[in-house]
Every structure is written in structure tokens, then in C-alpha cells.
Simulated assay, not measured.
Amino acid sequence: MFERFTAAARQVVVGAQAQARDLGHDRIGTEHVLLSMLAEEDGAVARLLRPLDLATARADVRRIYPSDRPDLSFTEADDEDAAALKAIGIDLDKVRAAIEESFGAGSLRLPKPAPRKRGIFGKFYASGGHIPFSPRAKKLLELSLREAIRLHQNFIAPEHIMLGLLREGEGLAARILADHDVDFRKLRADLENALKNEAA
């Protein structure tokens, strides 16, 4: 199946892994695929999804699906929490300064986990290890192939991947699109038109 992927579609898959890794997630979901397509600002998918952009979608993913690696640095401490702690004599800035003075700057941030051992000789991969696709993300990629076949096209472009995402329709990416009032029918028609123009 991957031999049919265009260079841009392969970049979507590679970018999805990078998005998952950047967010500290242990698997690649539909949301990471969406983020990867939005990262290509000049790509047809990102243009068709405007005004939704990468920063907004990443914020949505962080809100709905927080990182597996929490940050203890107090940098995003809620103002109400900080005020409540201050009322009982605890100043977060002073606590942070004292900890960093004792243990070094940035010591409250958890380090990235070490790469897992792989292979029979226990070699480590420099990339930080492979992040697997969730079953829903795998289904999305299979549906992108079905969309290409339905449109009588022998290649899979990012637009086909987006069509697969819309067809799957139940993942976190679909939820983000729905939350931003994306009209799935209109987007589907626009994607198909873009593909017809690309194939011509």
C-alpha cells in the first residue's frame, strides 16, 4: 500500500510520528495525522481547513489528550491555584527558585524517557524508537487507499488521507474538526475537486 503514497503523503505519515513524539504520546492517532497535514501550510488539506491551523489543533489535542509525560514546572499553573497557595503562605515562584537553586535550572521538568531496547542484541535506536499507529489510525490509512480506488486513482495523496479521515469519522481528529464547525460534506467535495485537478 505504501508504494502508492506520494512523497507528500509519506511526509504526512512521517510527520504524524513526529507530532506524536513532540506531544509525548505513545501511539500515533488520527489527531497526529491531522496535525501533520496542518503542518504543511501550503498543502491542499491545510488550505481547505482554514481558518483551523496547526497551533489551534495542537491546543485542542493537548486539552483533550494530555501528554503521557507531565511537566511539573509550574509554568502553566492556574492563577486561582497560585492565589490559593499564596493565601496559605506558599509562593510558587519562591518554591521554583529554591528547587532550581538546589537541583539546577529546569529540574522540575521531567526528562524524555530513554529509548526502549530493541532487537535481540538490545540495541537502542537513535530516533527514540518506533511509535505504533493506533487501530483507528491504521484504519484511516486503509480508508485512504479505498478512497483512491473509489476515485479511480493509482496514487495516494494527502487529500486521500483526509478523505479517509472523514470516512472513518470517529477519531479525535474528526472530533476536532466537528468542534471547529468543519462541514464534512463540503470538505469532501473540495478534496475530490482538488484531486481531480491534480490528476488532470
Rank of each mutant, 00 (worst) to 15 (best):
L166W: 05
A77T: 14
V61T: 12
S73D: 04
S127H: 06
M162D: 07
E3N: 02
A173Q: 01
S127T: 13
R146K: 11
R185I: 13
R136E: 12
V61H: 08
I156M: 08
G15A: 12
F74P: 00
M1G: 15
A126S: 14
K94P: 04
R50G: 04
A137S: 09
P113Q: 04
R118C: 03
D60L: 10
S134E: 07
E101H: 14
E100P: 07
E40Y: 05
H160T: 14
G15R: 01
S107K: 13
D60F: 00
R185N: 13
L163G: 10
R63S: 06
R185D: 10
R47V: 14
L145A: 14
L48M: 08
Y125N: 04
Q11E: 14
L172H: 00
A157S: 15
A77L: 05
Q19S: 02
R47M: 06
A9T: 02
A59F: 03
F155D: 03
M37I: 11
V95S: 01
R4T: 01
E147D: 06
A173E: 04
A137F: 01
I120D: 11
L72C: 05
H152V: 08
R63I: 14
K112H: 13
F103D: 14
D183M: 11
E159K: 05
T56I: 10
A157C: 11
I90D: 02
K112Q: 15
R10P: 00
L49P: 00
L163P: 15
D78C: 02
L191P: 03
Q17A: 12
N193P: 05
H25D: 08
A46Y: 02
S67T: 11
K117C: 01
R116N: 15
R21M: 01
E170M: 09
D190L: 07
I156D: 02
T6P: 00
Q153C: 03
L54V: 07
I176G: 08
H25A: 03
A174S: 15
R150F: 10
A20R: 04
D60Y: 01
P113G: 10
R185P: 03
A126P: 00
F74E: 00
L172T: 15
A57C: 03
P135W: 15
G106L: 09
L108E: 06
A194I: 06
V33D: 09
V12L: 00
L85M: 08
P66S: 00
G164K: 01
Q17D: 09
E198N: 11
H32G: 13
A97S: 13
E41A: 05
E80A: 13
F74N: 07
P158I: 08
A189F: 05
Q11L: 06
A87K: 10
A173F: 04
L38A: 02
D79P: 15
A82M: 04
D183E: 04
T6L: 00
M37L: 14
D60V: 04
F155Y: 15
P135V: 06
V95P: 06
F133L: 12
P51V: 07
E142M: 05
F5P: 00
L108I: 08
R10L: 12
K196S: 13
G169Q: 05
A83S: 10
L187Q: 11
G29P: 04
H180L: 07
E170A: 10
H152L: 12
A199T: 07
A137L: 09
H152K: 14
R185H: 13
K112Y: 14
V33C: 02
P70I: 01
A200S: 10
K94M: 09
